[in-house]
Design a protein around this nucleic acid. Structure first.
Length: 667
DNA sequence: AGCACGCCGACT
DNA sequence: GTCGGCGTGCTC
């Protein structure tokens, strides 16, 4: 393939300044004309020539529409096209949806370069660059070059939600969750067809499970792990392989969803409702949304899966955008019990059914006792009647920071050194403390001679020391038992339920069913403190029905995810600008302002799905103008405030689309 | 961000 | 007259 000498290059700058987030044209100097490719990282001069910036070539052309005089590309960083057209296209779409910049997305996708690794890789693969040329259609074409849709010639594209029932299975040397085995079954076919698979999971433990299952199926040689835990030299090597077009199974956490395999056959997202799939940095995209966008752009197959569908996914199922399928494994019934009212001592916290379940199970194998995460329990309850403790002024939830601190209202910030319960007049509070060690102590007394293990979030224990053991674990720390635990006990149900945001119930169900998933198929599961409603859902395992119903409720109330939301935060004088920029747009509501902890203003904008693009565009414009004004404001502040106290925080405007933790909307 | 341009006040 | 302070605007 011959490369025409391109005279002009269109680039995106590798800068997070919002006002620079658009294409720039540069002249290609003659000495670079035959080497330059779409996707390469280049260095370009900016303004006076003293400044320079990294940039990615997104298009080569023979003409430019820029009326001014062009600067020249200064140099090419490496011959490898690290941002192929389809990756730029994805990054652009994600940035547009999230009101963010392309460069912020690309930073998540492209790892740091390792020159030595790259050099030796290119020596060992002499035809690599030529192949990359043909792979990415390097001719002078517009940027929107999507990879060939997976379905070309074969069966129709699948978009699927799989409701997983849980369970652990041992095959060969490895125990792994059942979902990871069925993922491998599915992935094999795509590799056989010469296509690639991307598997995105919430947690590093999940990555390991998938790796084990893949290794068992002899797919190690086509498996690429793109964890943050992989050393960076190795990550760069992995990235080069991903770009090469060889059929691969890429496994990783949230940022793996961007892995730029050229022939993507299947995009698989496990645990689609998990909060850790949200990128905590700008532009705050949820891997599930990125996956939906990517499916739409490439036409690949898409599988989302979890123990409990998120309300967002349920919406897509009800629209028939996703097909619902339920895994057919037989699972034990979940026995839900509640605490007796008015009792707070430990003997009541662990009801008798729990002791008998453990007693029965222990001779045959391991028992998992699942307690809520300690930090999960910031809200408080009346020690007497167990009702949620609420602020006497505004009815907001009372929260505890550090242990022994004064309870504070989560809405208005009022401190409450004393408390009087509204329902029963009780005057003392209990925090939803988990007290793993207290439970360990209690169980140790009850089961003399049993081995008791308390897990910690920091340690990675994937296998059990021996069979007859009681494991006391917080979410995410549970070790796998070979073919599942004989019994799983879920304690602290009421603590999990005390988290307050829109999706409390769905999150609680998800936490409990995750715990339940560790049980053997003929094991026993007892859940304490789920409340009658969720207890019934657990017992019947009608989780999709429950989430569908809660989605219907949201539709009536006009709340996410029946509608979309954007959380806008910025400096105190933000309000007129927010209202102005959204004035002519069809938003449903602009809620706020409320004050954040760091005294910024926060607005919540609610709008319909069909208006998302428009709203995002306007909010983006708000970010750009506020970035241009920020210095003006800062210097004005400096002058008026007698210079000695300088709280010169850069009050940037941030926008988070479809935030999962909208506590403010709860009435 | 960082740098140049330009519009007002104080000056050899 | 013109030197230079610092807002304002732009970066192909």
């Amino acid at each position: 393939m011959t490369i025409p000498n391109a005279r002009f290059a269109r680039v995106v700058l590798d800068s997070s300044l919002p006002q620079l987030d658009h294409p720039f044209d540069y002249a290609v100097p003659e000495n670079l004309a035959t080497e330059i490719r779409v996707g390469q990282r280049v260095i370009v001069p900016l303004r006076s020539g003293n400044r320079r910036s990294d940039a990615f070539v997104i298009e080569l052309a023979d003409a430019t529409e820029f009326p001014g005089t062009l600067s020249e590309i200064e140099s090419i960083v490496s011959p490898v096209p690290v941002v192929p057209g389809h990756l730029y296209e994805l990054a652009r779409a994600v940035a547009d949806r999230q009101a963010g910049s392309v460069s912020d997305v690309l930073r998540l996708c492209v790892p740091t370069r390792y020159v030595r690794v790259e050099k030796s890789f290119l020596e060992q693969n002499p035809d690599y660059l030529a192949r990359a040329d043909s792979e990415s259609d390097v001719e002078k074409r517009p940027i929107a070059v999507s990879p060939t849709p997976a379905a070309a010639g074969s069966q129709a594209t699948q978009r699927l939600f799989i409701l997983d029932a849980g369970g652990t299975e041992q095959r060969g040397a490895w125990s792994a969750p059942r979902w990871s085995w069925s993922f491998v079954e599915r992935a094999k076919d795509y590799i056989a067809r010469g296509q690639s698979v991307v598997c995105v999971v919430p947690d590093f433990r999940d990555v390991s499970h998938v790796e084990h299952a893949l290794a068992h199926a002899n797919l190690e040689s086509v498996t690429v792990r793109v964890d943050g835990d992989v050393p960076s030299a190795q990550r760069w090597l992995a990235y080069l392989r991903i770009l090469s077009g060889e059929p691969l199974i890429v496994v990783g956490k949230r940022s793996a969803v961007y892995a730029p395999v050229p022939r993507l056959g299947l995009l698989y997202l496990w645990g689609e409702g998990d909060d850790s799939l949200v990128e905590p940095h700008a532009p705050y995209a949820h891997a599930r949304d990125v996956a939906l966008i990517r499916q739409n752009l490439t036409g690949c197959d898409l599988v989302l899966s979890s123990f409990v569908p998120s309300a967002a996914v349920m919406r897509l199922v009800r629209m028939n955008y996703l097909d619902l399928s339920k895994s057919s494994s037989t699972r034990p019934k979940i026995q839900a019990t509640d605490l007796e009212r008015g009792s707070s001592d430990l003997s009541q916290r662990i009801p008798s059914q729990v002791f008998s379940a453990i007693r029965e199970a222990l001779p045959d194998g391991a028992v998992l006792v699942h307690v809520a995460k300690p930090g999960f329990a910031s809200t408080t309850r009346c020690a007497q009647c167990r009702e949620r403790a609420r602020c006497s002024e505004c009815s907001g939830p009372l929260r505890l920071g550090a242990r022994g601190s004064v309870p504070m209202c989560g809405w208005c910030g009022r401190m409450h050194p004393t408390f009087e319960c509204r329902s029963c007049g009780g005057v003392s509070l209990i925090a939803g403390m988990s007290g793993q060690s207290k439970i360990a102590e209690e169980l140790g007394r009850a089961f003399v001679g049993a081995r008791i293990v308390v897990t910690e979030a920091s340690q990675q224990m994937s296998e059990l020391p021996d069979d007859r053991v009681i494991v006391i674990a917080t979410p995410g720390t549970e070790p796998l038992a070979r073919n599942g635990y004989r019994a799983v006990i879920i304690l602290d149900g009421e603590v999990t339920r005390s988290r307050d945001d829109l999706d409390t119930d769905v999150h609680a169900l998800s936490a409990w069913l995750t715990a339940a998933s560790f049980a053997a198929d003929d094991g026993r599961i007892v859940a304490v403190g789920t409340g009658p409603l969720l207890g019934r859902v657990m017992a019947t395992r009608d989780v999709d029905g429950f989430v569908a119903q809660s989605l219907l409720d949201r539709e009536v109330l006009g709340l996410p995810p029946a509608v979309r939301s954007a959380v806008v935060e910025g400096p105190t004088e933000l309000e007129p600008q927010v209202r102005q920029v959204l004035a002519d747009l069809p938003s449903r509501a602009i809620l706020g302002p409320t004050s954040t902890r760091d005294s910024k203003q926060r607005f919540i904008v609610l709008f319909d799905y069909r208006n998302g693009a428009e709203i995002a565009k306007s909010l983006r414009a708000l970010i750009v103008t506020s970035a241009q004004q920020s210095r003006k404001r800062a210097s004005a502040q400096m002058r008026s405030e007698s210079a000695d106290q300088a709280p010169s925080r850069t009050t940037r405007v941030t926008v988070r689309m479809d935030d999962t933790a909208l506590a403010h909307l709860e009435s």
